Simulated assay, not measured.
Amino acid sequence: MNDQLAQLAEAGVSIWLDDLSRELLRSGDLQRLLAGKHVVGVTTNPTIFASALAMGDAYDQQLRESAAAGKTVDTTLFELTTADVRDACDVLRPVYNATAGIDGRVSIEVDPRLAQDTTKTIDMARKLHQAVDRPNVMIKIPATVAGLPAITQVVAEGISVNVTLIFALDRYQQVMQAYLDGLDQARTAGHDLHTIHSVASFFVSRVDAEVDARLDKLGTDQAKALRGQAALANARLAYRAYEQLCATSRWQDLADAGANPQRPLWASTGVKDPAYPDTMYVTQLVTAGTVNTMPGKTMDAFADHGHVTGDTVRDTHDDAQRTFADLAALGIDLDEVTDLLEREGLEKFDKSWEELTAAVGRERVAAS
């Protein structure tokens, strides 16, 4: 086992791969990542699936069969993606069993075009859960205003959820409450709370990309000194909010009934600024009971030269608050930044889905 990644796992960080393809499954590479790089979970998104379709001929047979059967592009896309996630769930099932369902998870996202429609998001989450038909699947729901009641309803039905696209601290508070509301309703409905799991995917690198651009425009020494600090401060304050929720009597009551905590997950951990260490969003966000979902490039970088220097999250909230205050003093409005990033994130999700749909259409023609 790789020493650096083993140390990260030993520090209590679950390592999830932000990638999936049929080639990764058929070649045995996913299984090797479990054995050699301590991977215990997988996340997917439309961009990942579009890239997978463009690689080799692994999907050709299913595409031909779908075209011959007269299935729509949307139906074909649904069947392709759920098939890959189902197979990945089977690969990760031993991890799921060994960790009592905490890890061994594979996430699949609802159609992002539904992000502003609560009812349709709930319906799609149900369909994805039923189609994959594996206990270790997690359904990804964006943390939009419309997504919050969808999270509650889906959790209430006993479905495990990966809440994605979280940037703002106030929205994260709402996400945590939505999860607790779902657990309360699940308990009332008689569901076994032990079987329900959730993660809250807090996006990291995009915050620095936006804030740094604003700091660069200011160009002062104070602004330069704050580059690369906003994202970590935001994530660390999110973790503090998680700690505070876990100290409430409401959470303790649910925990006593068997509920699992909604673990913080650090997403978008690939460094976008080459001036920063390529493992920064891993090394600086180490604390037990969290998940770090990494693209392959970031995972390889950490395996090569990453370091675990202890807990880099707990007891950092005072410094993080100072960073926020310093940014505010320079006129950087974090609420405006996170609102912008959510809108852009939804636009990127929509664009990726459109590209994925177009790719399925093209590949069906090419495979026929």
Rank of each mutant, 00 (worst) to 15 (best):
A200I: 02
Q62H: 00
L285A: 10
Q130G: 04
E363L: 10
L34Q: 13
K348D: 11
T144W: 13
L218A: 00
Y179M: 06
V106R: 05
R126H: 15
I102M: 11
G361M: 06
L17C: 12
G270R: 14
Q4S: 15
R32T: 12
L327F: 01
I166Y: 07
A88K: 04
G228Q: 05
Y172A: 01
L340E: 09
R134I: 10
L92Y: 03
Y172N: 05
R250C: 11
S51A: 14
M124F: 02
T312V: 01
T309S: 13
A288E: 14
K351R: 12
D333C: 06
D221Y: 09
T338I: 01
Q321T: 14
A213S: 10
D350M: 07
T283N: 11
A131F: 02
L92G: 09
H194Q: 14
T316C: 06
T82N: 03
L183F: 11
I196V: 13
R236W: 08
I196E: 01
V132F: 11
D333Q: 05
Y179K: 00
I102D: 13
D74V: 06
R93E: 15
V360G: 09
P142W: 13
L254W: 08
T121S: 12
R250T: 14
R126K: 12
R343S: 09
N162I: 06
G28V: 05
V360R: 11
V110Y: 10
A358H: 11
D273T: 08
I166T: 02
D256P: 07
A328C: 05
M1L: 00
L334W: 02
D123R: 10
A83P: 00
L63D: 04
L33K: 14
D90K: 05
E157Y: 01
R86D: 09
P46M: 00
R227P: 10
A178W: 08
A247I: 03
P94G: 12
A367C: 07
A328Q: 14
A231T: 01
L5K: 03
F49Y: 13
G296M: 15
R64C: 08
Y276I: 03
V39I: 14
V365T: 15
A69P: 07
R187K: 15
R22M: 15
L77A: 10
Y281G: 03
A98C: 02
L20I: 05
L34R: 14
D87I: 04
R263S: 09
T72W: 10
A186R: 05
A235K: 08
V91F: 09
A68H: 13
G36D: 15
A50L: 01
A303D: 02
T76Q: 07
L77K: 00
P135H: 05
Y276R: 02
A131N: 03
G147V: 11
R263D: 04
A325E: 15
H38D: 09
F49D: 08
G331T: 01
T316Q: 15
V337R: 03
A329D: 15
D335C: 00
L180G: 04
Q62F: 04
N162P: 02
Q153D: 14
D273S: 10
N260T: 00
D111H: 02
L330T: 07
T309R: 11
D74A: 11
L77S: 09
T287I: 00
T309D: 14
A366K: 14
D318S: 10
V360S: 08
H191F: 15
A83V: 09
S160C: 04
A275G: 15
